[in-house]
Design a protein around this nucleic acid. Structure first.
Lengths: 334, 334
DNA sequence: GTGAAAGCGCTAACAA
DNA sequence: TTGTTAGCGCTTTCAC
């Protein structure tokens, strides 16, 4: 029956029978291993095509690699993260590795959950994007699976990392606002900025505080959970007479929420964001923001992983320099 | 040595030894299978905690399920797709299944590649989002792995599907433009709309043509590859004196690109999009668009998959009704 | 250059 | 109620 061949997934055994060789021979051809005659390679290849053979990754995983790279991503709503994915895909193009993404659900320990799910599936390497995870947990993971930490400041010997220079980016944003004449500048951030000293948001918060202190200005910190809430928080603030002429938001999604609230309230408060998501430079938005090269950073994370997989042992910690992009959302106060 | 226990991933065997029981007993506890005494369950659970045991998914895959659902996604730059993911995550919450996402690289057959990668990794079910794939290939895949097709119009007995009613959505958009007084309406779409009769874009194109014909108006179809190119195409069109007073874009990313070009050219051409991405209702954008309930649709796709995994056999094809959202990007001509 | 066979960690049928 | 055991498909020595 033609059916019989369709019914069950072909195994290496089926291919061996079809080609009239041993399973080991097929495996060798598959892995391009040493010691196969051209004649055999040809017959085996033909048999693989004929049987429509595809190796089962799980069986391979039992003996070694899966040719899979996993990325844990905290939030698809933030396009900065999806740019990272674009970069990662680019860098993986042409390699035998497949990218799989595990989204972290909302919640405190969910980043770890997603990383563990990846490790349980025996990915050959993991990229963890800004996971709110204790360093020792990452060390534990990295001791089994090559890991690149993205965006945070834990630099460990166990894993590589890619991050932006948030102090510098924040300083650039603040300098810009000061130069325009603002002194009453609020910082809109997420609650986690307080609890996680190594997170980018925490660094941005501290850099903001430093800048304000240096300027002899009083800090105004607004904390809100995520994008939509940023809107709510700003509405309240705007209605209640926000004692600020400018807002520095910890990331663009927050900034967009703020912009929305401000626009609706008819307020002319200036806003600066962070990341430079694609929509930021749309004429209708014109968000002044701190550009981070997300695509390049994502690609670099993958490169570091591939280097590890190729045998590098020492840890590498790369820092990318952000760059202020001035647009229409900032102007002199008043 | 404390090291010894840390060095190697604990297996079911290790747990069995620690608990002083057989491997089968551990496996039973793990699977919550019939015939385990409370005492045994307790000892085994304790041993699992002590050894920090985590089942290896690959080994499970060799015997059956992986508790993994895979989604193939064509483009992270389009936030409509990421809303689908949000819905899928919601629906999977509380189930034992883990979501993994395989991004399709740009290119013709890349959607299939990503789906195959998922199948090779033995996901228990796949959701394929708008893959430009021949129906017979999907049937082949569905014959091995439960599949839900998202967004396209191939309805097969082999798999379930979730789609929006694109004819209706398009009609709503066109009616709106006609009602405002537009007759010279251009359609901005992607080249694939011509080659793939079952894709949403193809349906929208035909519905546009039908509406124009019914109104006795000449059709103007602009084709452009993706978002940024939409911008370029519109710039050209605007500079060259676009013979249209309104544009119906096949999806919001195209519409945003058009809006950008139009704004820069100082043109007041109206624009309607499709999908209602989150940024569309931002005051700075105000994009009139056809809302599709992405989150609900993503959740439904997962539900259908879970039903299949639970044993349903007949195919289900769900169609969601889109809804026009009127904003500031459309107004009377002139 | 080629093949036989062990074994990766787990599940499930069967035996005790 | 608990334990024994046979594989799942693949890679990888080690003989031939």
């Amino acid at each position: 029956m033609a059916d019989a061949s369709t019914r069950r997934h072909a195994t290496i055994q089926d291919v061996a029978v079809t080609a009239g060789v041993s399973r080991a021979a097929v495996s060798k051809v598959l892995r391009d291993a040493y010691g196969v005659s051209d004649a055999m390679r040809e017959r085996v290849t033909a048999a693989m095509t004929e049987r429509d053979y595809r190796p089962r990754i799980a069986a391979r995983a039992m003996r070694g690699r899966t040719f899979t790279i996993g990325i844990e991503i905290p939030d698809f709503g933030n396009s900065f993260f999806t740019r990272i994915l674009d970069g990662a895909m680019d860098a993986l193009d042409g390699t035998p590795y497949q990218l799989v993404i595990a989204p972290a659900a909302h919640g405190t320990r969910m980043g770890l959950r997603a990383i563990d799910a990846l490790v349980d599936r025996q990915v050959d390497g993991v990229i963890a994007v800004s996971p709110p995870v204790e360093p020792w947990e990452l060390d534990r993971i990295a001791s089994r699976t090559p890991l690149v930490m993205f965006g945070r400041y834990d630099t460990s010997d166990e894993y590589d990392s890619v991050a932006g220079d948030d102090s510098r980016g924040t300083a650039a944003a603040m300098d810009h606002l000061f130069a325009l004449g603002h002194t009453r500048i609020a910082h809109l951030t997420i609650p986690a900025a307080d609890h996680e000293p190594r997170s980018p948001h925490s660094v941005r918060l501290r850099a903001y505080q430093t800048a304000m202190a240096a300027a002899g200005a009083d800090e105004i910190v607004l904390r809100t959970d995520e994008a939509q809430d940023a809107y709510g928080a700003m509405r309240e603030a705007a209605d209640g007479g926000l004692p600020a002429t400018a807002i520095f938001a910890a990331h663009d999604e927050l900034a967009l929420g703020a912009l929305r609230a401000l626009a609706e309230a008819g307020s002319s408060v200036s806003v600066v964001g962070y990341d430079d998501v694609p929509i930021a430079d749309h004429p209708g938005i014109g968000l002044t923001t701190v550009h981070q090269p997300g695509v390049a950073m994502g690609a670099r994370a993958v490169e570091l992983l591939l280097e590890r997989l190729a045998g590098r042992t020492g840890a590498v910690h790369d820092v990318f320099t952000p760059e202020l992009r001035v647009r229409t959302s900032t102007r002199p106060p008043g």
